[in-house]
Design a protein around this nucleic acid. Sequence first.
RNA 1: GGAGAGGUGCCGGAGCCAGGUCGAACGGGCCUCCCUGCUAAGGAGGUGUGGGGGCAACCUCACCGUGGGUUCGAAUCCCACCCUCUCCGCCA
Length: 426
Amino acid sequence: MLDVRLIRSDPDAVRAGLARRGEDPASVDEVAEVDTEVRALSAKRDALRAEIRVISNQVGTLFREQRKDEAAELQDQSRLLGTEEKALDVRADQLAEQLRRLLLHIPNLPAEDCPDGDGEDDNVVVRVEQYDPTSYAEHQRVEHWEIGAELGILDVERAVRMSGSMFVMYRGAGAQLVRALCQLALDRNADLYEEIRPPTLVRTDTMVATGHLPKFDEEAYRIERDDLWAIPTAEVPLTSINRDEILAEADLPVRFCAHTSCFRREAGSAGKDTRGLLRVHEFDKVELLAYCTPAQAPDLHAEVMARAEGTIRDLGLAYRVLDLCAGDLGGSAARTYDIEVYAPGVDRWLEVSSVSWFSDYQARRAGIRYKPESGKGTEILHTVNGSALAVPRVWAALVETYRQPDGTIEVPELLQPYLRGATTIG
RNA sequence: GGAGAGGUGCCGGAGCCAGGUCGAACGGGCCUCCCUGCUAAGGAGGUGUGGGGGCAACCUCACCGUGGGUUCGAAUCCCACCCUCUCCGCCA
């Protein structure tokens, strides 16, 4: 969430930032109003408490000196103050709660240099790599679900029977390919990123920390009986690893890498991209995430980007990089680059990684701070993350891109060691 | 799931069923200074987080698992919940 003090000291800047997102800036005024009231009330309450404390101490002294009758008067006085204090306290708590609720619904401010725009059409294509539209042959213009069925490596029909639409099942070499991709992504980042295998079911507050709740509860699967949520991305548990902790600046940046299943209800996209692997409810993903100081953030953002991009590049896939405009930014992000891979069979660009810098937005929600080496106190740290590799769409692009005239799939060299040396599938 | 023990500051560990100046003894760690060929040992002081106010020194409130309650006053009493550990049961 945003720092209330920023809303207090520079509401215009906050309003301007929200406007760039196409968000209603009115919430800023509401926050400012409630904030003022909360502070006024708690100041009054605190003064009363101080008074009560002084009186109570006097009562204590009188009791010790056996002057109980003199204490009675003070007790009455304090009791009266107590009634008043209680009323103020209840009201202040209510307002503080309301303030928090409001703040949790306000998205992050876009970064200065984030491009303007209303939606996905305004995203800026930063670069297109390894893409030559004239280079694709007919045998590559087959959709991955056709290829998958033909080779027996993707069984959508039976997955749907057991779990419903938008669930998939990989088989044989297809399943091995899933495993190969994940392992490749983990291995490529093992030099700097600590490998984590986190829980995939988390509590509400863990989802709140990353900004996936309370605003987007329709998007996540919930296990009601135990009040747990299925994570939509490893970003959720990874961000909460050091929740409510204070790290030393010398320990930053902290880097994590995790392979998990990810679960998404895709409630807002009913009917869209329902075929094959374009959009599925459950998928494998390897995520990179870093905690860092504000000063380190630009480098870390570039680093995660370079790693995500490098894997796609080395797999020999065509891709492009988008700089998301303010209007298309996720709620918690300040700046995001998307990597979209080109899948010739479906002839579409598929988003395979969102590399985002969240400034201190998530860390403030999660209570992750660091002690600066110079100076005292603590600072909220910054978080950066991105998919090192999201399986389904990469799998799809790979199978379509590497389909040979004879219908088999050539395995890129990079993946061969992970497929027991196999050079083809099918 | 059943039975027992327990959750206190960076750590250990008092205080809690004698409720009052306890943000919390004591020890360790860490930091500064002194002493000292170096180091070790020794000596003095310091060492939490968050909110609000003040240019600042500083003042004030909250925090002893969480949330309620009792009380003039709660780390200390009462209630509920959560978590951890040990044993038993069950189980991949």
